[in-house]
Amino acid sequence: MPASKNPAIEDYLKTVYAHTEWQPDPITPSQLAAKLGVAPSSVTEMVKKMAAQGLVAHVPYGPLRLTDAGRERALSVVRRHRLIETWLVREMGYAWDEVHDEAEVLEHALSDRLLEQIDLRLGRPSRDPHGDAIPAADGAIATEPFLRLDGAPAGHTGRVLRISDRDPEVLRALAAAGIAPGVAIEVGNADASGERVLVELVAIDDGAAAAASPVELTAGAAAEIWVTG
Rank of each mutant, 00 (worst) to 15 (best):
P2R: 09
T86A: 15
G93P: 07
R82E: 11
M92D: 10
V183F: 07
A175K: 11
T28R: 15
R148Q: 09
A223L: 07
V38D: 04
E102A: 14
A221L: 08
Y17A: 10
W22S: 09
G220E: 10
L147D: 00
V183L: 00
D68A: 13
K5N: 14
F146R: 08
K48H: 11
D25P: 00
S42L: 01
A137R: 14
V160H: 00
G139R: 06
T28L: 14
S111L: 08
R124T: 11
D128E: 06
P129N: 09
Y17F: 14
G229E: 09
G62R: 14
P29H: 07
G207E: 05
V183N: 01
I118F: 14
T218I: 05
W96P: 11
T86D: 12
V202S: 09
L149C: 00
E200L: 08
P168F: 02
I141R: 12
E45M: 07
Q23I: 03
R65N: 03
V199L: 10
K35G: 00
G155K: 03
A184E: 13
A208C: 08
V227L: 02
A190W: 15
M92S: 04
D119Q: 10
L149A: 11
V227E: 01
A184L: 15
S213R: 12
P63E: 12
R73L: 12
T28I: 08
A3G: 03
H58D: 00
T143V: 12
R90N: 14
K5W: 03
A212V: 00
G70E: 01
E116Q: 13
M50L: 15
E45H: 13
G158E: 10
W87G: 13
A137M: 00
A52F: 04
S42Q: 13
L115N: 11
L147H: 01
N189W: 06
K14S: 11
P60M: 08
L106G: 00
A208G: 04
A109C: 04
E107M: 15
T86G: 05
